[in-house]
């Protein structure tokens, strides 16, 4: 087939040129198709969540009410208890993670040489890949099985710490490496000790990048569900106490409504009526969670753009 084609082709095209062109075109098509394939689930999923979730979000009381006393038979309900729980758990997690992660990153970039540094880098990699359910089991094994604690919100925070630390360490590391050595030298040349150089010169210079890393870390853990299942019960009512009792969170609310999805028919006035209150709330909570995470991601990008390093 090649020879037949090439017999008629001009001198400029050697034998096989046709096949080669076809292959090239096929590859180009496939590459473009791959990109299109990635867009399909993203757009489809976002459309689903927005179109199904917007109803609850625009209802009065979604951001102020709770699920107290509301069953799958009842319309309405709010997500305030879940938003509050998520914010509290994530805030505690951030407060613990940030100092540790910053110190680890500083250690790796500014001090680390030798076996401990190599080991630390490796372990941060492993921590990046640790499944959230394993992190949760670990916290369970330590604080509940061993020390006899009760399931509560702060244990979720601890499990999330293990997921957040590697995210912040990695971004901070990159940012510290971007700080020009000239600035460190300028500081040393003024007779400033190393630790003050790091704290007062290097960290402020890398600050926006570090904040980006922290925000990305928050976005990463805010939607994490597995630790909730093991480490805290779901409460339909508001519980602001991280250290005692069941506590709601956005993923917890989604999970709770999901388990009510099956019950869609109720008796009303002697007639069977199909309802979708649980589904409404589930998608409402999903949209709330996505909005929270997306806002955090956008914020991270805006902050990253205002970086002093680049």
């Amino acid at each position: 087939m090649t020879t037949v084609e090439s017999a008629g082709s001009s001198l400029a095209s050697p034998p096989g040129a046709g096949i080669r062109k076809v292959k090239d075109r096929t590859a180009t098509t496939l590459v473009y198709a791959a990109f299109a394939i990635a867009l399909v689930p993203l757009i489809w999923l976002l459309w689903t969540v927005v179109s199904k979730g917007i109803y609850m979000l625009t209802r009065n009381g979604w951001f102020t009410g709770t699920e107290r006393g509301i069953t799958y038979r009842d319309a309405g309900g709010g997500a305030w208890h879940a938003v509050l729980g998520t914010l509290e758990q994530v805030a505690l997690c951030t407060a613990i993670s940030v100092p540790i992660a910053l110190l680890v990153a500083i250690y790796l970039v500014e001090y680390g040489r030798g076996p401990l540094a190599r080991m630390t880098t490796f372990m941060v990699d492993i921590l990046t890949g640790i499944p959230s359910i394993v992190a949760a089991l670990f916290i369970y094994a330590v604080f509940i099985t061993t020390f006899g604690g009760e399931r509560s919100g702060w244990l979720v925070s601890l499990a999330l710490v293990m997921l957040m630390i590697p995210v912040i360490v990695r971004t901070t590391e990159e940012m510290l490496k971007l700080v020009p050595n000239e600035l460190r030298e300028a500081s040393y040349a003024l007779g400033v000790p190393k630790w003050k150089t790091i704290v007062r010169i290097v960290l402020p210079t890398a600050m926006s990048g570090i904040v980006t890393g922290v925000v990305l870390g928050i976005a990463r853990v805010a939607g994490e569900t597995a630790p909730l299942l093991i480490l805290v019960g779901y409460s339909p009512d508001k519980n602001a106490n991280l250290f005692s009792g069941p506590q709601a969170s956005l993923p917890g609310l989604i999970k709770d409504q999901f388990s009510n999805l099956g019950s869609t028919t109720i008796l009303e006035g002697g007639k069977r009526v199909t309802v979708h209150y649980a589904a409404d709330r589930m998608w409402g909570a999903a949209l709330t969670l996505i909005l929270l995470v997306m806002i955090l991601n956008l914020a991270a990008r805006v902050i990253a753009r205002r970086s002093a390093v680049n």
Binding site: P180, E182, L183, E185, A186, S187, A189, I201, P204, T205, M207, A308
Partner: peptide, 9 residues
């Protein structure tokens, strides 16, 4: 130094 290096922050 060779290149001016004021602290950017």
């Amino acid at each position: 130094f060779q290149r001016p290096n004021p602290f950017p922050t």
